[in-house]
Write a protein that binds this DNA or RNA. Sequence first.
DNA 1: CCTATCATGTAATCCGTTACATGATTAT
DNA 2: ATAATCATGTAACGGATTACATGATAGG
Lengths: 172, 172
Amino acid sequence: MVWTMSRPLTDTSYAVLGLLDRLGPSTPYQLKQAAQSGLFYFWSIPHTQIYMESARLAKVGLLEEDQEAGGRRRRIYSLTESGREAFVVWRDDPSTKPREIRDPALLKLFLGSDPIGLAGDQVRRHQQLLDSYLQLEAEDISAAGRRALEAGIGQEREYVRFWTQLAQPIEE
Amino acid sequence: MVWTMSRPLTDTSYAVLGLLDRLGPSTPYQLKQAAQSGLFYFWSIPHTQIYMESARLAKVGLLEEDQEAGGRRRRIYSLTESGREAFVVWRDDPSTKPREIRDPALLKLFLGSDPIGLAGDQVRRHQQLLDSYLQLEAEDISAAGRRALEAGIGQEREYVRFWTQLAQPIEE
DNA sequence: CCTATCATGTAATCCGTTACATGATTAT
DNA sequence: ATAATCATGTAACGGATTACATGATAGG
């Protein structure tokens, strides 16, 4: 078993490891492609990040890096033994860091923005997101993907509810 | 009117500006104190960030920096004309960048974690957060604070619902 | 053939986190 | 007095975003 002295991996690292676990040997571009139909809907990663993170993980021995001989000389990454192990350990640990809401719209609301004005924009945005999620739901996706999608749908429904109610407060 | 060539301000910048707008001249420590009873519940900022951000904003002329003569020689910041203007422009623009869900628990769920195990932990966490929010609701807070709090309560309720339902799927 | 767009990266910058450090107050 | 904790920072580091750049492929 290999002992790495490097800093703990980030969520981005695990996203890359997890995608490789699912897809098998891939180029960073392929990872990006795969993530665009699913993961990126609730956790986007710029393509440069994927390139850099892949290189980083290879450097600490969690990925193996092969390069095409001719043509584009693309780099193809695959999980090593320790890479797969690191991923599985993370995946099978049910405890997670709590996430903060950190919604810029709420920040404005808290700092004195006009609720009605904000709400108009927010309702539109969240309704649109909700619609796109519902559309995705109709397509054929993995069980895990569907579960995550359900979470997103619930969240957006709640957002729409919150901002709508804020814009038209019922008398109490 | 002053023309600043610096990069656009971050949300953290506006949080500092907004707190100063509400509190008047303050030390970074006072800003932190004020934020702890409200803002930090959905948008935490490490104290070092507040010190650094204040210094940054002073450097570009959005804050004025005074320093105590004796004793601790604390730095006291206050909004300049252009500082207040920058804040108001931001606050009164109802459009905001949509925020991503980016929930580490959802990332695990998507990448193949066991739903039941995850759900147990998540329900507990979110229920606890929800309870603390409900307790805060009973206290006397500002209207803006209350609105933001309502959002948080709605979010946590939805999370509890989602993970609970995931752990005990009803037959369909 | 030419030019869009796809594919594939490199580099600079900067925010945010973490680690560290130390002077003032307060409690015992 | 002395310990504990509050208050107030500095500095290192690294991930993430942004800007830039260029080789392949396909469409016209």
